[in-house]
Amino acid sequence: MSPGLVFDTVLAFSLVVLAVITLRQRTPGEAVVQLMIFGLLLALSWLRVDAPDLALTEAAIGSGVTGALLLAALRRTGFGKPFPAPVSAWLRYPVTLGCAVLGLILSLVVMQSWHHPAGLTELTRQYMPETGTENPVTAVILNYRAYDTLLEIGVLLVAALSVYTLSGPASGTPVKPPGPIFRFYMRIMTPVFWLVVPYMVWVGGRAPGGAFQAGALLSGLGALTLLGPSPWPMRLRRRVVRWGLTLGFTLFLAAAAWMWQHGNFLGYPPEQAKNWILLIEIACTLSIGISLTVMFAGCAGWLHEDPKIAPESAAQAPKRRHP
């Protein structure tokens, strides 16, 4: 057995064990933490099958953003309150059995596809020069299957709009200011984020990266900014937030309509494809970042008002700079 195979076996085994552990937690808080660890190991296993794009997305969105959203939502219901009584065995065992059978069928399908390893790889490679990007994954996401991505951005917009419309004020305890070390951290890290996010968009043209990863990073900055008084004036006007939410989908749709007028629906003219893709990616990054931040704020109950600063320590907190 090669070391790689041993590692993969241990990794696969721990994924299954972690999934069971996650399901068997007593409280939602513990379950969310286990889910985040599960997401990180899953990202590692994507890396093992040479899919760094998926690994990045899984680590950023599957583990980081999802975990943050769930934890923010738990602010309302309580981290440590145990789950209500488990569903009855009559429901649990058939569902478990069904999932096991489905998993078995899926793994059989995957094993079948080993006999036909090529798939669409050759076709993807053949037309790469016309796609306007050097990264095959970006080519699939934003050129070959741009239709799917357009709909995904639409789904994200609908989700963010639902949260924006439905979220009420925070219940729960008011937030205390997080102190000087957090402020120092934000002062250093905010410019780093502003450097890394555009880099992530740009590098998507030839290496793993792109709008979704960059958007997830941007939303990480947004969530950190919401957590405490930030030294950087980063609170956006409501109008900016609303425009930012819709920017990606609107621009994508407008580009699709323009291309429909001048040829095929979402068929980029090959010589301008790079510019189109870059433009759409920038708009989508902003929209994804703002959408996820809005969802985080909405889950935590901070969307339509500032986080309440506890009265006794309000005097020490630096004034938040409103634009």
């Binding site: 205390k176 997080p178 102190g179 070390i181 957090f182 120092f184 951290y185 890290m189």
Partner: peptide, 19 residues
């Protein structure tokens, strides 16, 4: 970046525990 983040995360966690 990991040093900065882990120090800040540790501080926030300890602060919450103390409070």
């Amino acid at each position: 970046v990991t040093l900065l983040s882990s120090a800040t995360g540790g501080f926030l966690l300890a602060q919450r525990i103390r409070r």
